[in-house]
C-alpha cells in the first residue's frame, strides 16, 4: 500500500464513522420520540403499553385521512393529528385503561401479579384491534405521506450528507422533548403527573385527581406517538400491521436509556441509532437490526436499570 492509498483508505473509514455518528444521531432523535411515550406511561402509571406501536401507525393514517381532504404538506397535519391523538389518549385512559390498571386491580384486592398482567393483556388486545380496524378501513396497501423534501439532503462535505427530512425530525424531536421536560417540571399539571408517579396513594391529598392525571399522561404519550407516526410516514411506507416493529424500537431505546428520564430516552435512541448504522456499514444491511439487539442485550446484561436511570 502506498502512502497515498493509505490516506484514501483512512479518509473513507473516517467518513464511514462520521456518517454513522451523524446519521445514527439523527435517527436516534426520532427513536426517542417513538420511545418517550412508552417510557412515560410506564414511569407514571406502571402501564406496559403494548399498543404503543399501533398508536404510532394510527397517527400516520390520521395524516392520510387529512391529506385526502386537504392536499397540504404533511407537516401541517401535525396541527390536527397531535391534539386529536392527545384527546384519544385521554379518553382511552379514562374510559378503559383506568378500569383495568395496576391501581384498579389493587383497589379490587387482586394479587399484584394479576394486577400487572391485566393491563398488559388489554393493551395487547387493543393493539390487535387497532391494526385490524386499520386493515378494514385502509386495506393492506403500503401508504406514504408524499412530500417534496423526501429526497433532499443536507450536504456537509463532498462525500458526507444527511437526509434533510431526518434532520428536521431530529430537531422537532428535540424540541418536543424539551417542551415535555418543561411541562413536567414547571407546570402544576406536570408536577402532578410526577407526584402521582412517585406516590399515587398520597397525591390525592394534594388535591390531585389521579384518574385525570393518568389521562393526561396517556394523552401526551399518544400525542407524541402520533407526531412520530406522521414523520415515519414521510420517510417510508407503512401498513396496518407495522406497529409492533416500532414497539420493539421503543422498548430498545427505553431499555438502553433507562425508564423515567427524558434525557435517557434521547441518548438511548441516539446510541441505538448509531449502533444500527455502524453495524450496517461494516457488516452489511442485515446486521443493522442484529447490532441494535446486541446493544440492548449488552445493556440488559450489565446495567439492567438502563444507562441513565438514577
Amino acid at each position: 500500500m502506498t502512502p497515498e492509498e493509505f490516506n484514501i483508505e483512512l479518509y473513507w473509514s473516517l467518513i464511514d464513522i462520521v456518517n454513522g455518528l451523524l446519521t445514527g444521531s439523527v435517527i436516534g432523535g426520532y427513536y426517542a420520540m417513538i420511545s418517550i411515550g412508552l417510557a412515560m406511561t410506564f414511569g407514571v402509571m406502571r402501564l406496559v403499553n403494548l399498543a404503543h406501536g399501533d398508536f404510532i401507525i394510527v397517527g400516520a393514517y390520521l395524516a392520510v385521512v387529512m391529506l385526502n381532504f386537504l392536499p397540504v404538506s404533511p407537516f401541517f397535519t401535525l396541527i390536527i393529528v397531535v391534539p386529536l391523538m392527545f384527546c384519544l389518549g385521554y379518553v382511552l385512559q379514562r374510559v378503559l385503561i383506568n378500569h383495568v390498571s395496576v391501581q384498579a386491580m389493587e383497589r379490587k384486592g387482586l394479587s399484584t401479579n394479576y394486577g400487572l398482567m391485566a393491563p398488559i393483556l388489554v393493551t395487547f388486545g387493543l393493539g390487535i384491534f387497532i391494526s385490524h380496524l386499520l386493515l378494514g378501513i385502509f386495506e393492506s396497501d403500503a401508504r406514504q405521506l408524499k412530500n417534496s423534501l423526501a429526497f433532499s439532503a443536507i450536504r456537509i462535505s463532498e462525500d458526507l450528507n444527511i437526509s434533510l427530512l431526518r434532520f428536521i425530525f431530529f430537531v422537532i424531536g428535540v424540541i418536543i422533548l424539551i417542551a415535555l421536560h418543561l411541562y413536567l417540571n414547571r407546570t402544576h399539571a406536570g408536577r402532578a403527573i410526577r407526584a402521582a408517579s412517585d406516590d399515587a396513594e398520597i397525591s390525592p391529598l394534594m388535591g390531585i385527581n389521579t384518574a385525570h392525571v393518568y389521562g393526561l399522561a396517556l394523552g401526551i404519550s399518544m400525542a407524541i406517538a402520533g407526531a412520530a407516526g406522521v414523520m415515519i410516514g414521510m420517510i417510508r411506507t407503512f401498513q396496518p400491521f407495522d406497529g409492533p416493529q416500532f414497539l420493539l424500537i421503543a422498548f430498545g431505546a427505553v431499555i438502553i436509556g433507562g425508564l423515567g428520564s427524558i434525557v435517557g430516552s434521547l441518548v438511548g435512541g441516539i446510541l441505538l441509532g448509531i449502533t444500527q448504522v455502524l453495524a450496517g456499514t461494516y457488516f452489511g444491511p442485515s446486521a443493522q437490526l442484529v447490532g441494535g439487539y446486541m446493544l440492548i442485550l449488552f445493556v440488559l446484561a450489565f446495567k439492567p436499570q438502563g444507562l441513565f436511570s438514577r
Partner: peptide
C-alpha cells in the same frame, strides 16, 4: 410520604395543585 424524586420546592408546590 413525600414525593421522593421531587425537590423540596416541588414537593411544596404539589400542595398548591
Amino acid at each position: 410520604r413525600l414525593f421522593p424524586r421531587l425537590t423540596v420546592e416541588e414537593n411544596l408546590m404539589t400542595g398548591a395543585y
